[in-house]
Simulated assay, not measured.
Amino acid sequence: MVRGIRGATTVKEDVEEIVLDATEELLALMIEKNEIQPEDVAQVLITVTEDLIATFPAKALRRFEGFDYVPVMCAREIAVPGSLENCIRIMMTVNTDVAQDQITHIYLNDAVKLRPDLVLTDQSESV
């Protein structure tokens, strides 16, 4: 069965290493909490708000062993007035037998505002 795993985070500055490190942190938690194996990932879509232009956050996925061949793409998020700024969102599509209500979606930093109903207590403690 195919499931989508969501995640989002924010950064304080549009600097390449800051964006990549934040994306890596988010991906690591998504992978860990959902026990994801690279061969089970169909694709990863990463979007950023229009204020993040320093790098392609997809580069962070290549920091993970075994994820070399996972298809990943970046896109720009819709610029809705008043929406969360400096935000990186991830949609990871995986093959899994886990029920939809058992998927752990990860929201860090200011992105906890996006889906407070899905935020685990320890997620909001990220810096």
Results as ranks from 00 to 15, higher is better:
V80P: 03
G4K: 15
A58T: 05
L61F: 00
L45A: 07
I5D: 07
S126E: 14
V98K: 04
A22I: 05
K33S: 10
G7V: 14
Q100C: 04
L26E: 09
Q37G: 04
V41N: 03
E85N: 12
Q43H: 03
D97S: 00
D14Y: 02
I78V: 15
M91T: 12
D14A: 11
C87A: 15
E65T: 12
Q43I: 03
E50V: 08
T93D: 00
V94N: 02
A75T: 11
V119Y: 14
A22L: 06
K33W: 15
P38Q: 06
I46F: 01
H105L: 10
K12M: 14
D97C: 03
T23S: 10
G4N: 15
A111G: 13
R89A: 13
I31D: 02
G7N: 13
I103L: 06
I53D: 10
C87Y: 08
V94H: 05
D51W: 12
E25K: 07
T104I: 13
G82P: 07
R3F: 04
L29Q: 14
V41D: 03
L52H: 11
T93M: 03
V44P: 00
V112P: 11
D110P: 12
I31W: 01
D14W: 04
E77N: 09
L20P: 05
I106F: 14
R62V: 05
D21F: 05
D68G: 10
E17W: 00
I46V: 10
F67S: 04
T121F: 14
L120R: 14
N34P: 03
K113F: 12
F64Q: 01
D51K: 09
L52N: 11
D117Y: 07
I78F: 06
I18A: 14
Y69V: 11
R89I: 11
A54P: 03
P81F: 02
G7A: 12
T93C: 02
I103G: 05
I53F: 10
R6C: 08
T121M: 13
L20H: 02
A99F: 02
K59C: 02
V112I: 15
V72I: 06
V94C: 01
T10S: 15
M92A: 02
T121R: 13
Q102C: 04
M91N: 10
Q37V: 12
D21M: 07
L29W: 11
I106G: 13
L29H: 06
L52E: 07
L45T: 11
D51T: 07
V98G: 01
L20Y: 03
V44D: 02
V19N: 08
E24M: 02
I31N: 00
V112E: 14
E13F: 13
D14T: 06
A75K: 05
I36L: 02
A42R: 09
V80Y: 04
F56H: 04
V112G: 12
T23P: 04
L61Q: 09
D51P: 08
E39P: 02
E13I: 12
I36M: 01
Y107A: 12
V127D: 04
I106W: 14
T93Y: 07
R62W: 04
